[in-house]
Design a protein around this nucleic acid. Structure first.
Lengths: 219, 219
DNA sequence: TAAAGTATGTTGAATTTTCAACAAAAGGAG
DNA sequence: CTCCTTTTGTTGAAAATTCAACATACTTTA
């Protein structure tokens, strides 16, 4: 586990916990590491909501796929970010989303019940972990609000511009990369891919944005 | 505060805390009660994200209103439900939503920093409160997933049917009341009101649903 | 009770999206 | 480098949404 220490220290779940303690903790929590190739399923929809995941390398996507195969991308998680925590913490039986590896990646899996319920060793770090989990969940909720702000817009153009404005603000610059290809961006914005491509071209012709691959510039 | 005890006991925030302790706790937390008439603003967008709210009577709506005045209803909270906790817990400076009284209502307001940070009296209930907050936030996240499942659908018909199916499941019956009027339902589903009315009529004519005011029946 | 205001249903025109099909460009494997 | 696959852009037709305007039903209150 030591090789992952530098990454885990950046993880919000382990904020305010010192290195030495962190290593011990991982053993006590029964943390496991798993690797997945690109496109492989980390958690399948309907599987038990038991584990909290932490991205150690690569990225994973949280997606919902409906009856007709329509995909909706809820979020993308990169290094040191936590995923599936809401399902495990809410103690629901199965998860309503699919988590897939967006590129080759390693993830750490922790049985959430080990975090929530005090163990026989009475390790004494559960409180800090629960506090950190709470903060993490609060921040995730804020991200959902942001996503709704984007997808509640009625036209592809408005959705795209709202999304880009948020990304620019996040990057602190009018020029920034987005973590999605065209199809993924469409699945995040909840619009048709070809319509999105057309709208991007239109905005480019109008001189509103510049765009090269997944790098956008607001003009 | 005693008059609200029966309501507060039902509040998830105070789960596993006994009556006597709860009363003391409220004083220590500096809980205040405020009343609002219908349509009045409980929290305005942009105001400080300081307080957690608990509905004591009536209902409040969490809404986002964009630059052009388009309203989007994120959720509606009834008796004993908690709201605005995510913003307070994430310790962001201002809230990105508006909370309005949907009918005359009373709400309890608690300064979140009193929950998150141990007080000088060292009351010892913070841990339980934080645990409860974490569970509450996890459940809110699940509700957001559900809302996205609804609004990610591309047509008014699909959005409506997905929403009604979830409500039926929640009610445990094919017949149920929804907490929205037509305009509010449209603002929740992110669709046009008149289009929604037309779609409801169509579904009724086709014999897919029955509907009287805000009572729906799936056939 | 009457009047005024609010909510709901209906309709047609304008706008926008979706869908399908294809062309062009980019990327990867051998 | 070439072939094959994937991604992106383009287009037109069909479908759906939005918008505006109005009729009707329901509520509130004076």
């Amino acid at each position: 586990m030591k090789k992952y220490l530098e990454i885990l220290k950046k993880c919000a779940l382990f904020a305010d916990i010192d290195d030495e303690k962190l290593i011990k903790m991982l053993t006590c929590l029964g943390a496991k590491v798993a690797a997945f190739d690109k496109k492989y399923t980390v958690f399948a929809e309907g599987s038990a909501a038991k584990y909290i995941g932490i991205v150690l390398s690569g990225t994973v996507q949280i997606v919902q796929v409906d009856y007709y195969g329509n995909r909706s991308i809820l979020s993308e998680m990169g290094t040191a970010e936590v995923f599936a925590e809401a399902f495990a913490c809410a103690e629901i039986s199965s998860i309503p989303v699919t988590v897939i590896a967006n590129e080759p990646c390693e993830v750490m899996l922790i049985d959430c019940s080990h975090i929530l319920h005090t163990c026989e060793n009475n390790c004494g770090f559960h409180q800090q972990l629960i506090f950190n989990l709470m903060k993490d969940l609060a921040k995730k909720t804020i991200l959902f609000h942001q996503r709704i702000e984007v997808t509640s817009k009625r036209t592809t153009r408005e959705k795209l511009m709202t999304y880009l404005a948020i990304q620019a603000k996040k990057a602190g610059s009018d020029s920034f990369n987005i973590p999605f290809d065209r199809q993924e961006l469409a699945d995040y914005l909840e619009v048709d891919r070809s319509g999105l491509s057309a709208e991007i071209s239109k905005l480019r012709r109008e001189g509103v944005i510049k765009c090269d691959k997944n790098r956008f510039t607001l003009l």
